[in-house]
Each structure stands twice: as C-alpha cells, then as structure tokens.
Design a protein around this nucleic acid. Structure first.
Lengths: 148, 148
DNA sequence: GCATAATACTTGCATATGCAAGTATATCGG
DNA sequence: CCGATATACTTGCATATGCAAGTATTATGC
C-alpha cells in the first residue's frame, strides 16, 4: 500500500466513519436526530431562502431522491420543515426550514461542535487544523454540497 | 461557523460521503461488492492470520455485531470467507479470508486505487497528499481500525 | 465448586435506503 | 397544438442496519 492517494482515501473514510458513529449516538440521545437529518437541516440553513427542492437535497447529501422524500415526511410532521409548492413549476416541492427547525439545528450544532472538539482534542493543534482545513477546502470547493 | 474543528469535521464527513458514493457504484457494478464488504475484506487481510472474530470486525468497522453476522453469511456462501472455531473459546467464530476472498480483494483494490486517483486528480499534488497523509495518520494511529 | 456476571454470537423487529416503476407536470421538435 | 421526451416526486419491493432479547460459553467472586 504505497499509493498516497489510496492511503488518504482509506484514512478519510475511516476517520469519517468514526466521527459519524460518535455523532449518531449523541444526536440520537440528545436531540432525537439522525446524522443525515442534521445534514439535511444544515443544507437548508445554508440555502439562499432556507429552502431547497428534494432533488437538490438528494444531490447535496449523496442519497437517492426517494430517501429525501422519506426523510422529510417525519420531519415535516414534527414541524422542523415545511412543504412549499413552486408557483411556476407544479412538480417542485420545496423543503423549507421552519423556526422550530432552526432552533433544533442550533441545538444540534452545539452538540456537533462539542463532538468535533473532543475528536481533535489532544491530537491536533491549531496549525494542524488550519492545514487540514485548507487542504479539504479544495476538495469541497467546487461541490454544491459544500456547507463551509 | 468559525470553529476550525467544526469546519474540518464537516468537510471530512462530506468528502467521505462523496468518495463513498463513487465507490459504491463502482464496486457494485464491477465486483458485486458493497463498500462495507470491501472494508471487511481489508480488515481481514490486514489481520495477523488473515482472520478476526466478529466482535473485532464490528469494532473496527464501526457497525453492530449483528451487522457483521449478517454481512458475513452471504460472503461465506460465496466463498470469500470461511468460518473457523476457536479451540479454547467455543463462543468465538472467526471470519477467515479465503483464497477466493484474497483474489476478490485484489481486484477491488485496483478499483479503489483508480477511484482514489480520480478523486484527487487535478486538485492535489504530491505535497498536498503527503501533508494530508501525515495529518490523518495521527487520527487513525491509535485506532485498531487503522488499515494503513 | 457454584451462582452471578460478562462475553460472543444470533435473531426478531423496526427503521433506513436504493432501484425501478408509476404519476404528474414541463419542455421540446415539428 | 401535439406527441415524445425529460424532470420532480412518490411508492413497492428488496436489502442493510441497529437495538434489544435470546442462547451458549467463559470468567469472576465468594
């Protein structure tokens, strides 16, 4: 295993799996939220009018359209998001971040920040963090998925 | 969003999602393998005697024990792995990499390398790759999950 | 030694997700 | 304008996964 691209891809995937596993437990216990639901809210909050179509969400989250449909249903019932039709195109069904969703996201963000802190704690200093941030920025820069 | 730990965690998760999505399509089409099945084989290949208990696999893959049980069943049927009991502890059921599994993994590794190459292509040079590798090595170093 | 606790694995049930097909609407070419 | 095609979303079905409970075996405390 000498190829640095392979090594980096493996390490990225494994690191992400570890972070995701930690987050899943915390989000579920503290907010009754899944990691993907958190990201859905993040994408909405990041969007111009706090709203996105389902296909846009699917692309940004790297999941299928049907997954978005089924994720949104319970979130809508709980009042975190609203459904909004488009005046010009009757096919579109926007998912809109509600006030309750915004509050929920605010709380979840704190948990995320805490976990992110724990994760890097004791292993990385500010210089490392800045270095990684700059490296990854080039990977996510072009992507519509970028949340940062 | 000023906390560099938060930014890095978000970018790591999103980057990994993108890589994983690409791999999933390729692995499924080319090898009839899921990304997690690939990692299971990688962990076995990485282990001292090409074998691990199910709980060890579960820990290293950040999945539940039941998931390992159910992942292994079809892989065993296809001959990629064998089941092996422990002489001292009758509870243990090792998963062993078979010759067929080793071949399969070899092919899948090539696909992985190709995809990893595409992913970093045009965006990163060797210096960047080395830098990231060094940064991530500290994150995965302590972990038993480390494949690199 | 033996009862209790811990560990390894499996299984029932519920949820999550993708793919393919179905429905509704919009766009395009003539 | 109209049929063919494309797009947005939903739904049926199959697979993947976690949690909790169940079974079998081993370790621990007395």
């Amino acid at each position: 295993m000498e190829d640095s691209r392979v090594i980096n891809a493996l390490r990225l995937l494994q690191t992400a799996d570890e972070i995701r596993a930690r987050l899943a437990g915390e989000f579920s216990a503290v907010h009754g939220l899944s990691v993907n639901e958190f990201f859905l809210l993040m994408h909405l909050d990041n969007a111009p009018a706090k709203r996105l179509s389902r296909v846009e969400l699917a692309k940004r989250m790297y999941v299928s359209a049907s997954t978005v449909t089924r994720m949104v249903a319970p979130m809508e019932k709980l009042g975190m998001v609203d459904r909004e039709a488009d005046a010009r195109d009757a096919r579109l069904a926007f998912v809109v971040l509600s006030d309750a969703g915004r509050r929920k996201l605010g709380e979840a963000r704190e948990t995320f920040a805490k976990q992110a802190g724990y994760f890097f704690e004791d292993r990385w200093d500010e210089d490392d963090l800045t270095q990684l941030s700059q490296l990854l920025s080039r990977l996510v820069a072009g992507s519509a998925s970028n949340l940062t």
